[in-house]
């Protein structure tokens, strides 16, 4: 199975990227896929690069520590598209489609099907990580809103001797994710 997927790697990654980019208006897709300059097109280049990495990581069943930071790069982008968290992680599930289509007829064989399902369990695991990541970024946005509001009136609050967090020094980052 893995060999089969490995053989079709380029095709699968390409299809997966296209599915991921469906999050955007159709007319943006060509730009996102076509422009290779990472500064002129940071979104497209990041998605292409990271999905390629993630697919390889799934193939070799890479450990979670390797996957999370790279998955974060993608989710960080999809989380701010005003599209809701379901759409922010939907690209992970799209990989199942892509793979079934790539494998096509071979799935009628029972053992192949079993191995396919086995690979899909890795995708499911990736999906769970994606949920995690997405909720972390949504939380980060909420935190940022609060921090920004605080920064806006920073000197005022300090003059009034307002204690921001009511926390002893050094503990204010507990549970936070921003620094």
């Amino acid at each position: 199975m893995d060999e089969q997927l490995q053989a079709k790697r380029a095709e699968i990654v390409r299809a997966w990227v296209e599915r991921a980019i469906e999050l955007y208006p159709a007319d943006a897709a060509k730009f996102l896929l076509g422009v290779k300059d990472p500064f002129a097109n940071p979104m497209g280049t990041t998605i292409v690069r990271e999905l390629e990495f993630l697919f390889d990581a799934l193939l070799r069943d890479a450990p979670r520590d390797e996957i999370v930071p790279r998955l974060d790069r993608v989710i960080q982008i999809t989380s701010v598209q005003d599209a809701g968290s379901a759409r922010a992680v939907s690209f992970v599930f799209a990989l199942k489609d892509v793979i079934r289509r790539a494998l096509g007829g071979t799935l009628s064989d029972a053992s192949a099907l079993r191995r396919c399902l086995d690979f899909e369990r890795r995708i499911d695991a990736l999906a769970l990580l994606a949920f995690d990541s997405c909720s972390r970024f949504l939380q980060r946005i909420a935190d940022i809103r609060v921090r920004e509001a605080k920064r806006r009136v920073w000197s005022l609050m300090r003059m009034l001797k307002v204690d921001w967090d009511g926390l002893p020094a050094g503990e204010e980052e507990v549970g936070g994710c921003c620094r």
Binding site: I21, E22, D97, R100
Partner: peptide, 10 residues
């Protein structure tokens, strides 16, 4: 499953 293509901007 998996009959999707990139939709053109019609």
């Amino acid at each position: 499953l998996g009959q999707v293509s990139l939709q053109p901007g019609g």
